[in-house]
Simulated scan of single mutants.
Amino acid sequence: MNTPKTSKINSLLSMIPSGIVLTSAWLAQQGYSLELQKQYRKSRWFRTIGTGAMVRWDDDVDYLGAVYALQAHLGMTLHPGAKTALSLQGKSHYLGLAEKSVMLFGSPADKPPLWFVKQEWEKQVNFKLSGFLPAELGLVDIEHRGFSVKVSGPTRAVMECLYLSPGEQPLLEVYELMEGLNNLRPTSVQKLLEECTSVKVKRLFMYLADKAGHDWFNYLKKERIDLGKGKRAIVDNGIYIPKYQIIVPKELESIR
């Protein structure tokens, strides 16, 4: 016959998927006190990976297992974005992307906890905290090792790439990504463009989508998208595009 403590740990293990991080705060909310958590670690049910976080004793946990905890347990907006999100959805393989590092986007208030930052994950994790898009808009769920995490959908991911451009993300590469997005829903694109607060991102997105000649671009209500006023130099010594009032790299404009 199971003792209450054995029954409680069995209940926990059956409730959580393998491969994820568990936060002490979330466990406490579920009725597992800090003292009980300590006993579980002592009994080798779990092992700590930093203050306030633990994993099953013999679990192999990757960075997405930690992102799951940030989203599901801590209610944070941090999510795989930009090229990382596209790669997770199989939409950037033709770029030859060898993902040695990944990019997480999130709201300015969502500073990642120290246990996440200090942990040596299988890939280098970079962060970009910005409010240029609403936190929950344009995200999709992907399945990974028996659990799901929210990542940027294709439209949001490209906009995040453009947010990083040109300093952290080559524009030529973003154009290649844009060329592959021929099945976007105009209504979803419209919403993101209307809610985006970055004029640079909106102008570049419109320019690249126009250049790629996607059918969905023709269905956008362009008069409802605020592109701001005045010229914007994306790069020095580039070519000026009057339609979108931006200066872009010569090699990008030369593509036909």
Rank of each mutant, 00 (worst) to 15 (best):
L36F: 15
P80K: 13
N182A: 01
S43G: 15
T51L: 15
T187G: 10
R56F: 14
H79K: 06
C196S: 13
F127R: 08
A209K: 09
L22N: 01
K150F: 09
W216F: 01
Y68A: 04
A135Q: 04
G146T: 07
L137G: 00
S43D: 12
E160A: 00
P113S: 09
K243P: 09
V158E: 05
Y244Q: 11
P17Y: 08
R145I: 00
I241S: 03
Y32L: 02
Y175E: 06
E143M: 14
M1P: 14
L204H: 06
S165N: 01
G138I: 06
S188E: 15
F127S: 06
K91A: 07
K191Y: 13
G19D: 04
A233T: 00
W115D: 07
W121Q: 06
H144Q: 12
N182P: 10
Q39Y: 13
P186H: 08
E122R: 14
V158Y: 04
N126H: 10
Q71F: 13
Y207T: 04
S92T: 10
V21H: 07
K38E: 03
E122L: 12
K191M: 14
T51K: 15
V189Y: 15
R44L: 13
S101T: 12
Y40M: 00
N183A: 11
K128Y: 15
K91D: 05
G52N: 10
F217W: 14
H144R: 14
L184P: 04
K200A: 05
Y175M: 11
E99C: 08
Q29M: 03
Q89Y: 04
T187Y: 15
Q37N: 00
K200R: 12
N10P: 09
E168D: 11
L74N: 03
E251R: 00
T6H: 15
E195W: 09
T187N: 14
L86T: 05
L88S: 03
K250F: 07
E120F: 14
P112D: 02
T3M: 13
D215F: 12
L13F: 12
K231V: 07
D226K: 00
S148H: 08
Y63W: 15
W216N: 00
L162C: 05
L227I: 09
